[in-house]
């Protein structure tokens, strides 16, 4: 059974310029112990989706105007703030992109771990301290006893993100949402932090939502993948299926942007791919949102007038496009198991 089930989530920002449809009808589920990867370029609504689940969207201007977030059979969108506070950090934890700004600069690492422990668990000060040391050790921070009394600025970016992870897993959450956890880190540190997350996920039997704009990260860590574009899901499939048989032109472009292992120039050349920009999320066109950038859309088809449905093109593989790869030029790709 799915631990988290998001159904037709709609989160809009009510701004002076108009209503920004940042998340516009997103549905997915995450099973226990599984990793769902959410991928898409900057501004497509990944963070807002995550914050909506946590009840952390800035209200105002943002508001969840529709949909459901079912967590272990409970509807989170209708919980009171106090009830949500009991879920956050305890059942669902979250880590953020920038470890430089996500920790409070005026409190020690120890304080910031211990306050989480003492908020959710009935635990003495001494026990919290001991547990905090164990946690720092677990996330691979050397000399955890002395690190406990350090302020965040004494730690490198990678170490800070490890400290953030220690805070997040401190109360043994069942779901960890990681919003671009490696984006702000040095390339060499990125892989280590990703490995750590995978390790912890296994040892803590957590479900994970891993948000990234990097298909490489998805390939390495995700079980299932959601590809987002302009506030919507455009493709959804198990990771192997998605990489073997990408259907949506946008996914293909993202994968094309993924550097090959034998690519001497490394990761620097990422996002060769897609020309153009996503549409404005204020009054988006009643059309395929990708049409303007789609290499397969032509003036004769309905891409400019009709919004394609997210349809199940193969069992477990969903796509929102009139020109999925397997249907182009009348071809159908043979799928082998």
């Amino acid at each position: 059974m799915a631990a988290l089930e998001v159904r037709d989530l709609q989160t809009h920002f009510f701004t002076r310029e108009g209503v920004v449809r940042a998340v516009d009808g997103v549905s997915f589920s995450v099973d226990r112990g599984q990793t769902l990867g959410i991928v898409g370029e900057s501004g497509c609504g990944k963070s807002v989706t995550a914050l909506s689940i946590m009840g952390l969207i800035p209200k105002p201007p943002a508001k969840i105007v529709g949909g459901e977030v079912q967590w272990e059979g409970r509807e989170l969108t209708t919980l009171s703030e106090r009830q949500l506070e009991d879920v956050r950090g305890h059942e669902i934890a979250m880590i953020f992109q920038d470890p430089m700004t996500s920790l409070n600069p005026t409190l020690t690492i120890g304080t910031q771990i211990k306050e989480t422990l003492r908020r959710h668990l009935d635990i003495s000060k001494d026990a919290a301290r001991k547990r905090a040391i164990e946690l720092l050790d677990e996330v691979g921070i050397p000399k955890p006893e002395s690190r406990l009394d350090d302020y965040p600025h004494r730690l490198s970016g990678g170490m800070r993100q490890r400290a953030m992870i220690a805070i997040a897993i401190s109360c043994n959450p069942e779901l960890l949402i990681a919003d671009e956890p490696t984006t702000a880190l040095d390339v060499t540190v990125q892989a280590q932090v990703l490995d750590l997350l995978e390790e912890l996920q296994a040892s803590h039997e957590m479900a994970m939502i891993l948000i990234t704009h990097d298909m490489g990260v998805i390939a390495e860590s995700a079980d299932d993948v959601v590809v987002m574009y302009a506030g919507q899901i455009v493709e959804q499939a198990p990771v192997q299926e998605l990489f073997d048989h990408p259907e949506h032109p946008y996914t293909e472009a993202l994968l094309g942007a993924l550097p090959q292992i034998d690519d001497a120039s490394g990761r620097n050349q990422r996002l060769t791919a897609i020309r153009g920009r996503p549409p404005d999320l204020i009054d988006p066109p009643k059309a395929c949102r990708f049409a303007a950038r789609c290499p397969h859309a032509s003036s004769g088809d309905s891409c400019a007038t009709h919004m394609p449905e997210l349809r199940e093109i193969r069992p477990g593989h969903f796509v929102r496009s009139q020109h999925p790869a397997s249907e182009r030029a009348g071809k159908r790709v043979e799928v082998t198991a």
Binding site: E81, T101, S102, N104, E115, M164
Partner: peptide, 17 residues
């Protein structure tokens, strides 16, 4: 507006704290 306030909320801390 700072990120660490969002972190504190994500930890489930009470608003008062």
């Amino acid at each position: 507006q700072q990120d660490y306030i969002r972190t504190a909320k994500a930890k489930g801390l009470r608003w008062r704290r």
